[in-house]
Amino acid sequence: MSCSGGCHLMCSPVKILNMYGRKACQLVKEFASGEKGQLTPFNNDLFEQVVSECSQHHLELQSLIRKMQEEGLDVQTARNADHYGALIHLFSIVRNKRCLTAYVYNRAETVRNLLWKIGPVLPKEIEEKLNHWEEEYFKKHSAALKSYMSKALVDLTVDMVPPKDPYIQVRVLEDIREGIVLSDDKNPNFARHSMHFLKRTDAEKYISRGLMEELTG
């Protein structure tokens, strides 16, 4: 944002950029303006800046409180300039914290949804967008879901849409050579571009990994 008109007498543009909480707001906006369900790379740089802003606020808050104590004021009840100054630092920390947490929390939600949409193995181009902690979290959450499904004896990752017909027509997009498991124990040749008539539940896992596509119409 830039200052226009006579406003430059009161505040220079640089001051505005340093306004408390601005960076945290940018961080949240960055997430909110992204396409829903899609991740952008974790903005480490901006994130760290907000974190260090918090430490700075904390130092200033403490020094104001110390100053009040040295002046012999009761920190709980005194209502002088320093008290309000301290409040501004406190609110800034809390606001920054909310933004930081919202950023991580909402990304975590998107990360969990990847598990439903893509499955436990992420393609490289998506994995690159997660930071180290998010990768860990994805693995752990995926293990938790797997453990639930094995206890509850159901696979919740198939059957995402209501079945119309138990069989569907599919085209193989990439050669699938290994790990073919079908419920009728047959061993078909899933060569690239070949077409098959498969049970929907069998085909879904290949479709979600982008190895097959459903032919409709």
Partner: peptide, 30 residues
Amino acid sequence: KDEKFFTERCTDDLKKHLEESVLSTLPENY
């Protein structure tokens, strides 16, 4: 019962994730 167990695991994992990524970097009272 299974859902309770899942919820416990989930909350522990997400709490840890938030702590490691954000909360531990903040001043003590926050």
